[in-house]
Every structure is written in C-alpha cells, then in structure tokens.
Design a protein around this nucleic acid. Sequence first.
RNA 1: GGUCCCUUCGUCUAGCGGUCUAGGACGUCGCCCUUUCACGGCGAAAACACGGGUUCGAUUCCCGUAGGGAUCACCA
Length: 475
Amino acid sequence: MSATKVVTRFAPSPTGFLHIGGARTALFNWLFARHHGGEFHLRIEDTDRARSTDAAIAAILDGMTWLGLNWDGDVVYQFARADRHAQVAHQLLAAGHAYRCYATPAELEALRDAQRAAKQPMRYDGRWRDRTDWPADQPFVIRMKAPKDGAVTIDDKVQGPVTVANAELDDMVLLRSDGTPTYMLAVVVDDHDMGVTHVIRGDDHLNNAFRQLALIRAMDAIEGGWPDPVYAHIPLIHGADGAKLSKRHGALGVDAYRDEMGLLPEAVENYLLRLGWGHGDDEFISRAQAIQWFDLDGVGRSPSRFDIKKLESVNGHYLRAADDGRLTALIAPGVAAALGRELTSEDRDLLHRSMHELKKRASNLNELTAGSLFYLRSRPIPMDDAAAKLLASAAPGLLDRVRDRLAAQNDWTVPALEDMARAMALDEGLKLGQIAQPLRAAVTGAAQSPGLFDVMALLGRDEVLGRIADAAGGN
RNA sequence: GGUCCCUUCGUCUAGCGGUCUAGGACGUCGCCCUUUCACGGCGAAAACACGGGUUCGAUUCCCGUAGGGAUCACCA
C-alpha cells in the first residue's frame, strides 16, 4: 500500500441547519484526517437550487467553526462546478458508458406505477439504452450505462464487505434534461477532483456507493487515475424512541445546542464521539486523545439513539472543568439581559469569583446564568416561596441577632463566618441549619445556593448586612 | 414489496472462542459527606432478541426466525 495522503471531506447539502448527525459525520471525517495527518475538506452540495439557502450555508459554517472542525483549503461549492460535471457526463457519453434517454417524466412515472402495481422492483427499464433513433429537438437526459451482469463488493471499513448484484441497479440519470448534474455525478466527480481517498458518510448512502463506484470505474477505464475510494458508512443516529431523528428529539441545529441548551462545544464533541465509537471504557476523551485514538475499526455497526440526559451529564463534566474566566464571559450577556442592565467591572469580577462554586451546580450555561443572578441583584432582592417559608419559620428575632453578630465580625472570611454561625447556634441552642437556612434565604433569596459562607464572603459585609436588614424588615 | 444493513443492561458502550459469577458510563434507587442544593465517594437493581448448527467450549463463528433501520427520483 502506497503512502498516499489521506483526504476526507464533509459534504452537507445546505437545505437546513447542521444537525447532530451531520456534525458527527463531520467530526469523524475530521478526526480521521487529523489522525492520519491528512486533509479534511468541506464541500457544500448546493446543486439543488430550489432548496439550498445562504442561511443554511452560514449555519453550517458557523456550526463547524463552533465545534472547532476546521477544514483545509477553501470551501468547495458544488454548483460552481456544474460545467466540470457536465464535461464528465459527456466523456462518459462519448466513450459509450452513458447514453441519451428521451423518456419523459410522465412516461417514467407510468412505468413506476405499473411496476408498483405488479409488485416489481421500481427501476428504470433501460428502454433507451441501445437506441440511436434520437428524436430531433427533444429534451433528453444522460444516463449511466451500468453493468447488467455480475456483482460488486465494497469492502466497507465499518460495515464490512457488502455485495450487491448489478442487476439490482438501474441506469441512473447523470445529467438532467436542463444540463445540470445530478447528485450521483457531482459527488463522484468532486470527490475525484478533490483527491478524496476516504469517503466517510452516513449509512443512508451505502446503497448509492455501488452506483457511484460503477461511475468511477467507468471513468477509470476511460482515462485512468480514478481509483476506488475507501468507503466507511457510519450508522445513523436515531431518536430516543428508536425512530428516525426528528426535531422533537435532537435533530436540532448545533446552534440550538449552543444558544438554547447552553452546551459547551467540547461536550457536544465528546458526546458525539462516544455515539457509535468507543475506546475501551473511556468516557471523557480530550481532543488530543481522540486524534490519537480515532480509527474506523472502532466505529460500531448498529445505529445509536440520541440520549439528551447523557449529553447534559457530559456537559456538566466539561462545565466543571472549564476555566472560570471563560464561563464568566460566556454567561455575561445572558446575565446582563436577565438583570436588565449592563454589567460593571465589579459585577464581572464578582461573577468570576463566584464561578468556582456556581459551576458545580449547573449542567449547562442556562442553569449557570440563572444560578448566578442572586449575586448581582440590587436590594431588596426577590425572595422565592421556599425562601419566604424559611424566613417565616425562623426563630423570632433571629435575623436581627445574626445581624448584630455580623456587624461586630472583624474577620470576614469563610472559616470565620462559619465559626460565628456555629458559636451562635451553640449559644441559642439551635442546630446550625436553623440559623443557616433562614440566613441563606435572606442573603440569596432562595432555599438552595452555593455554600452560605462562601456567598457571604463574596458578597461582602455591607451587602450581606443590607440584605439581612431587608429580610428582617419585610418580616 | 425488492435490495442492503443492524441486534450486549432503559440508553451509550467494553467484549474481537475459554479471562463472563458479562465490565464502564448516563439514568434510576439506597447510603455516606453536609448549613441547603450540587459536586464527590460507596453500593444496588438492570443486558448477551429467539431457534438451530460449528466447536472440547459460544456473548464472541455460520444459518434461519423475529424485530429495527436504510434505500429504491431529471432530491441530496
């Protein structure tokens, strides 16, 4: 085997956002190329002019960038290569590997109806395959003259050897009657011209591979230099119910994972990597490790289901591991929006310093944002129902006595504050919780929060005393 | 319907003939830690779809059955 450079590609059609399945296909291609020190290209398959949109292209590029799946060279736009595709179609025609077909769409539909009624496989019957009595001035398509006998075996790197009889394949359209190329032609020509050595794509393309291979071999027979690519068809991702992934369960654009669900790109990447691929018992795999370990033989053959719970869990792991400054920057806009004001540098500083404790209590950026608000709210801070109950059931005058002690507190550090609370509990014959919980309610406005003394230390004496006074007064 | 593919705990998976009383993770449940909630720690329940072979021996190999999926356009 010659040491040719590995070239992979991700080739989405811009008819929608970059969904989770596409992102995984892109990731596998990227990883495979990086693992082998090869190239990874991005090609936009926009030959369907009616359904392709610029917004979709932007969303795909944006999603790829967010996930850090950088591509080599320029993005290839398939539509711009239509002339080249047509050129190949005519080469095939001239060499006798393709032919003109004058069958009309209505005619073909009638054929299919008849086949359906007779419970026959619905295939083009090759009615123009050997005719040369071409009508003048009539539109025609160029069809592949595919081999009728024998069988083709693809040694798929994921699925293993797969064989299909040529009799099962009909003569596909290469060039439409308007002269534009079909997908089958375009992929094959583009993959060849881009030097793609490994075609890693969704399982749904496995059947196509046989037709595409016939085309490749025909071109190789004509001019040489068209080697069979290595194929690897990866199983699709299904929804939690086992059915095809729909918008209901996860077939969202990656932008939704970022913007609406508040996920981190490395978490999405790790989750996707482990969906259909494994490396022993390893769960959390860094990008560097993934590049080192990833290979096609680790890819499973069965479809996997999308599990949002596990994704959230993985995200929580990466959230806890993430740098506090980075998380602060990520949630700052959301925090400002929720607060209805710009954040001062003091706000950001407080947010940053609270992050260490905050991130242990969130599994996504939305929760992180929501959990951080109480630090920055202006007095009097809102009180939720559980907090109000805690205050109502506190010992009479407790808050005032806490305030007196805190006002006299010289050492405003976490251990000192805790010692103060413990001493007070001892003096009052109360459990620590009987003091801490009402105090938590007063200081945070909630029954749950990061460690109370951490919060108090961060908030500072004036703010804490003020909040306690607010709560005591309103009680 | 034809063709092709798939089948280990609810889910993602480890396992590539004996190491399996089938391992890990998420989820679930219990306990611990503890000022709350988390985090963390410990533990529990939970799977080789079914039936035949091959073999001294099958979760691992082969064949059926069942179930699931993909695909059959002048869409990609």
